[in-house]
């Protein structure tokens, strides 16, 4: 189309507050704009949305199913509830499930104090995990010159897979296996250090929300990450296409 499409404006309610939105805005974007907190883990600005972590589920009046805020667009007259007792319980339980899946011992993690999962556990008030740990053992790959992947700390948010595919255009990362056996792999599940697609750009390290993909040589609590580079790069990539 030659001219820019004019976006229509919607008005709706989030947690009882009147807000206005463009029709292409999601509930999550709107909530953030209005200072309303909705937890997320798999979402990261600049990468495609997958709706996989289910933490951002919200209630919408008149709908019997919960909807992911990251993928649901504003509609006229919509009434959204982001913080009901039911949602709080679900979110805590989802975190408990994540903690029970792998090794999430914060005390000895390089990302201690700088981890999105840990921060959410604190913010959402998860004070213990009711489920027994699944006691899985997953492979730690230290073959890369500069980076390490500890799959025991991975939460399978697939940010690494997406950033590598969508921004770096290398597609070194992918996911293999299913259910609790699913894990992130490099190339065709060959050692990371031997990868001929990996450009060693380190974007996967920077988007990983936990201490799963990290730089070598970091001590406990040292692995700070920044991903503010992403939205800009994403725009540049879009333009290049």
């Amino acid at each position: 189309m030659a001219t820019a499409v004019r976006s229509r404006i919607r008005t709706l309610k989030i947690d009882g507050r009147d807000v206005s939105a463009r029709e292409d805005e999601t509930i999550l974007e709107l909530a953030e704009e209005n200072g309303i907190f909705i937890p997320t883990l798999c979402r990261i600005e600049g990468l495609s949305l997958v709706g996989a972590c289910r933490l951002c589920l919200v209630e919408v009046a008149g709908m019997n199913k919960l909807v992911p805020a990251c993928l649901t667009y504003a509609t006229e007259g919509m009434e959204v509830f982001t913080d009901s007792e039911r949602l709080r319980n679900y979110r805590r339980m989802i975190l408990e499930l994540l903690f029970s899946e792998g090794n999430h011992i914060c005390a000895i993690c390089v990302s201690n104090g700088k981890c999105e999962l840990q921060a959410l556990a604190q913010r959402l008030g998860m004070d213990h995990v009711r489920f027994a740990n699944l006691q899985q053992e997953r492979l730690v790959d230290m073959t890369h010159e500069r980076f390490v992947v500890d799959r025991n700390r991975c939460i399978l948010c697939a940010r690494c897979v997406r950033v590598c595919d969508e921004i770096e255009w290398a597609h070194t990362w992918d996911i293999k296996g299913r259910g609790v056996d699913a894990r992130v792999i490099t190339d065709l599940d060959t050692p990371w250090g031997e990868s001929d697609t990996c450009t060693s750009c380190g974007k996967c390290v920077r988007v990983c929300p936990v201490g799963a993909i990290v730089e070598k040589g970091r001590a406990v609590g040292e692995m700070a990450k920044r991903h503010d580079f992403l939205p800009h790069l994403a725009k540049m990539r879009e333009a290049k296409k």
Partner: peptide, 10 residues
């Protein structure tokens, strides 16, 4: 009530 007062690891 320890909500938001504690976190694992620290």
């Amino acid at each position: 009530d320890l909500t938001q007062r504690t976190r694992p690891g620290a």
